[in-house]
Amino acid sequence: MKSLTAARTAGDGQDLVTTLGGHAVPLRARSAVMLVLISIAGLAMFCWPLLTHHDASGSAHVTDAPIIFAVTLPLLVFVILAEFADGGMDSKALAMLGVLSAVDAALRPTGGGTGGIETVFFLLILAGRVFGPGFGFVLGCTSLFASALITAGVGPWLPFQMLCSAWIGMGAGLLPRRVRGTREIVMLIGYGIVSAYLFGALMNLYSWPFLAGADISGHANLAYSSAYSLLENLHRFGVYTLVTSTGGWDTGRAITNAVAIAVLGRPVLVVLRRAARRASYDLVRSAD
């Protein structure tokens, strides 16, 4: 029986979940539209120090914006999560999400974030790859949320981290499906490295105004200033992120991702695909 399934899967080089197009969390047209809109708004909330443009008189809003965004972003994340849940998440997807979130939350303290050794993302990338973009998105949110509740980590930064890791999980699900075997592992390692640097840059962009402050009086500093153009602020941010984190934290995270996927990628993918087959997230399979 087992060999039969193996032969069938090996025969067309794809597992049943992909062949039948069944995703654990289906991504409908409406969900996709909402996802794109929320991603645009969310990205703007990350990048506000770059986008902001005020005259000297309007500087009062500059201090308001981050607080209002920190309140609004959770609502936007809730809207898209509710949409996914409404779009047909069955109890198996739900239990799988819960258990994988717990495993991710348990992995997180092992790295502890010291020197950028962040062990959350590799499982997120692998699960997003196996279960599809919708599942990856929701898992990115729930695993960060659960681990923040269990170990310390609830704070104004949490919605931003959730959205960032949701994008990472979704991106892993959107990678080309046909690539298999060693090439798949290589592709995932590449994705892990790219996403580690992107995550670092986005979270830096989020914390930049808080840690470096705003450049009000216009002297040489690494802070943003609403009087500058997009390019000037981007230049300052580039220097800031290069100086503060690209060398240490981001590279550490990229190496962790790459090593973890290289060593554990294949066995974990097998385990996840086996679970996906057993849960068979589609009507055709569960009917027979």
């Binding site: 509710a82 999400l97 717990a102």
Partner: peptide
Amino acid sequence: IALYDIGTVVVVAVSVFPQIA
């Protein structure tokens, strides 16, 4: 109520967490 499913996911995660040890 709209977030009931997502809330359940997190409850499952928080409850399963001790079982991992």
